[in-house]
Design a protein around this nucleic acid. Structure first.
Length: 227
DNA sequence: AAGAGAATCAACCGCAGACGA
DNA sequence: GTCGTCTGCGGTTGATTCTCT
């Protein structure tokens, strides 16, 4: 894949953003919307590469960002999602409204990782550190850890794209044994939707208020009421 | 008060996937 | 099918801030 580096132009600023640059970027996006990051810097009068503009907007300037300390609930959700998904920070961030993948990644590396180690758990596998042997990939990916990992549901057999037979076929019950009815047919082009709040054990008497994520691969509850 | 080390987090880098020509 | 471009992601770096001595 031949690609031209996006930041090699001369006179391109790097490093911390100034207030003026922020203002320019915000003003431009408010007027023209997101998109076409490549041409945005020139159009907005910024001496930055598009990549840098996108990152600044996504991680810092977006109006819907929450900022501030993570709550206990967010903390627990990150741990559970990481156990399920691994380092898929963007997917995890999609389950935490107002949080960015970068923010969650940093929080994981600085807080949660240490916390898990302190609890004697391997931050990558979420298994006890003192077992003396690393689990195989199949073990890590497919086996529930309820025997040693408390109430964490580590059923990592969950798939982002189900086999065609999973919908409408007869084996949906093998995939979701606890569901009473077959999952709905996939919404093209991205199949299927997977309810994380269900899979993570966030079950309550309240109806699920899931909504589709922007990536469309699966959906989850923002503001679940279970614990 | 000052210096050292630790912690935090914004930003960069390189890669891979999607997409259009 | 191939190639080039753009976007988005995850890992990493380094500057800044905080805490301890």
């Amino acid at each position: 894949m031949g690609r031209s580096p996006c930041c090699e132009q001369p006179h391109t600023n790097k490093g911390a953003w100034t207030r003026e640059e922020d203002d320019r970027l915000v003003a431009y996006i408010q007027a023209h919307g997101e998109g076409c990051w490549r041409s945005l810097p020139k159009a907005a009068g910024l001496l930055r590469c598009g990549k840098s503009c996108r990152l600044r907007w996504m991680n810092y300037l977006r109006p819907d960002l929450k900022r501030g300390n993570f709550t206990e609930e967010e903390d627990e959700l990150i741990v559970k999602l990481h156990a399920l998904l691994g380092n898929k920070w963007s997917v995890i961030a999609a389950r935490l409204p107002g949080r960015t993948d970068n923010e969650i990644k940093n929080y994981w590396n600085t807080h949660i990782k240490r916390k898990l180690v302190g609890q004697g758990l391997d931050p990558q596998t979420h298994r006890p550190l003192l077992t003396g042997r690393r689990p195989s990939y199949e073990e890590a990916a497919g086996k529930s850890s309820t025997d040693e990992g408390g109430d964490l549901d580590l059923d990592l057999t969950i798939s982002l794209r189900l086999p065609a037979s999973a919908n409408g076929g007869s084996n949906w019950r093998a995939i979701w044994p606890e569901m009473a009815t077959p999952p709905p047919p996939p919404a093209p082009p991205c199949a299927p939707t997977i309810c994380f709040c269900y899979h993570l054990g966030f079950r309550s008497d309240q109806p699920c208020s899931c909504r589709a994520s922007s990536s469309g691969h699966f959906h989850g509850c923002y503001g679940f009421t279970g614990s």
